[in-house]
Amino acid sequence: MSQTLPSRRHPFHLVDPSPWPLIASMGAFCTTIGGVMYMHSFNGGGYVALLGLTIVLFTMFVWCRDIVRESTYQGNHTKAVQNGLRYGMILFILSEVMFFLSFFWAFFHSSLAPAIEIGSVWPPQGIHTLDPWEVPFLNTIILLLSGATVTWSHHAMLHGNRTESITGLIFTVILATAFTSFQVYEYMDASFSIADGIYGSTFYMATGFHGFHVFVGTCFLTVCLIRQIRYHFTTTHHFGFEAAAWYWHFVDVVWLFLFASIYWWGNA
């Protein structure tokens, strides 16, 4: 005699099978291979990297779209799910801390005991470094202001002030775009490239990856701005914005270390 078992109800969300992790990994692979090919002057390397970056951006869009549907329209993000997402975001930021730690390690390893091949001096002879009190200092002020505006937006959201929350996010996105623009100008004006020895390698790897994180954070905050305009967030249900704010504060802190070590101390 068959017996029907009662369904087990729990607060967790069991996600449906998704193709986006596989497609995102393929895009990241193409971006990496294409970037290496481009840096070593292989034909078509730039196109491969652009293809991979396009795949990654497309996957980010559709994956976030699915998450928004699960959270806003299907109600799958219960308190237990939100707590799990918070732990996941914390672990992700910790992994990013270790990622940038490797670049700082390489920089200090090379600058505190300069090799004889570069003349035992830092910066190496022939490298005309950037003035830290021009564009880098301006970008520092811009990022600190953006950190203040995103905090303003968060507090306004917690108190149900939707207008101020949207205004704070708009200012944050504008400041983030200004930072990226000045970073591009700085790279175009620099007299050295990533191929100019250990100084160029450590400088562009550290600041370049930080610039990429600023770009990702800008996309993150722009999505949050659109969602706030479309009434996706409430005073108690807005983890997507919290994750973006945490990520942006992480970007701010990393830049402060970059400015103090690579731009200022490493320039002395």
Score class of each variant (00 low, 15 high):
16 D>K: 13
21 P>H: 11
21 P>E: 06
22 L>F: 14
22 L>Q: 12
25 S>T: 15
30 C>Q: 05
31 T>E: 06
31 T>H: 08
34 G>Y: 07
38 Y>C: 04
41 S>H: 15
41 S>D: 15
41 S>A: 10
44 G>F: 11
62 V>F: 15
63 W>V: 03
63 W>Y: 12
64 C>Q: 14
72 T>Q: 12
72 T>L: 07
77 H>I: 10
86 R>E: 09
92 F>P: 03
95 S>E: 12
95 S>P: 08
97 V>K: 06
98 M>W: 11
105 W>Y: 15
106 A>L: 10
109 H>I: 08
112 L>E: 11
118 I>V: 15
120 S>M: 12
120 S>G: 07
121 V>E: 12
123 P>F: 08
125 Q>P: 03
127 I>E: 03
129 T>F: 10
136 P>M: 02
136 P>F: 00
141 I>G: 08
143 L>V: 15
144 L>N: 05
147 G>E: 08
148 A>N: 09
149 T>I: 07
157 M>H: 04
157 M>G: 02
159 H>V: 09
164 E>S: 12
165 S>A: 14
165 S>D: 05
172 T>C: 05
175 L>E: 00
183 Q>V: 07
184 V>G: 02
184 V>I: 14
187 Y>M: 07
188 M>W: 07
192 F>D: 02
197 G>I: 01
200 G>C: 06
201 S>I: 10
203 F>G: 03
203 F>H: 04
205 M>V: 14
205 M>H: 10
206 A>H: 03
208 G>T: 12
213 H>E: 11
213 H>F: 09
216 V>Q: 04
216 V>E: 05
217 G>S: 14
218 T>I: 06
221 L>N: 00
221 L>R: 01
225 L>Q: 02
225 L>T: 05
230 R>Y: 08
231 Y>N: 13
231 Y>F: 12
233 F>I: 00
234 T>Y: 09
235 T>D: 08
236 T>R: 10
239 F>R: 05
241 F>S: 01
241 F>K: 02
243 A>C: 09
248 W>S: 00
252 D>T: 14
252 D>W: 01
255 W>D: 00
256 L>W: 05
260 A>Y: 04
263 Y>C: 01
